[in-house]
Amino acid sequence: MELSDFNWWTQFIRWAHIISAIMWIGHLWYFNFTQTPTMPKIPAELRPAVVRFILPEALFWFRWGAMFTLGFGLILAYMNGYILDAIKLGIGSPSPHTKATAIGIGMWLGTIMWFNVWFIIWPNQQKVMGTVSATPDEVNAARRMAGLTSRVNTMLSIPMLYCMVFAGHYY
C-alpha cells in the first residue's frame, strides 16, 4: 500500500475523527457525570480552584475536540462519497440507504451538539469564568444556560453514538 493510497488517508481521517470525538465526548461526560454533581459538595473556599484552573483547561480540550470531530467527520464523509446522501438522511438515495440514514441522523445530531458547544455553552461559560464581563444576574443566567445545554448534549450523545456505531458496522 502506497502512502498516496486514498484508502490509507480515509483510515487516517477516521482515526483522527474518533480520537477527537473521544476528547470531546469524554470531557462532556466528565462535566456532566463528575464535575457538575460534585461542585455542591466542594467547600466554598475551594470552588474557585475548579472554576479558575480546571474548567478553562477542560473547556479548551472540550470545544476544540468538538471542532476537530466535526471537521474530520465531514472530510471523511466527503472522501467516502456519502456526504450528500447522509445530509438528506438517505431520502431519495438508491436503496438500500440504511447506512446513509443512520450516519446522516448521527451527523445531524453531532452538528447540533457542535453548535451548542461553540455558540451556547462556550459564550456562557466565559461569563461564568469571568473572562467576559457580566453582572451577577447575567452570570447566574449564563451558568443555568450552559448547564442545561450541556445536559441536552449529554442526552443527544447517546443516540448520536448509536448512529455512528450502527452505520460503521452495518455492512
Binding site: N32, L89, T98, I105, L148, M155, I158, F166
Partner: peptide, 30 residues
C-alpha cells in the same frame, strides 16, 4: 424539560428513549 435535564438519571433515560426513537426512524426509512 428543565426538571428532567437537571436530573442526571433523567438525562440518561431520555437519551436511551431517543435512541429507540432514532432506531425506529432508521428502520422505517430503510
Amino acid at each position: 424539560m428543565e426538571k428532567l435535564l437537571n436530573s442526571l438519571p433523567g438525562t440518561i433515560i431520555a437519551g436511551f428513549v431517543l435512541t429507540v426513537v432514532v432506531a425506529v426512524i432508521i428502520h422505517a426509512l430503510a
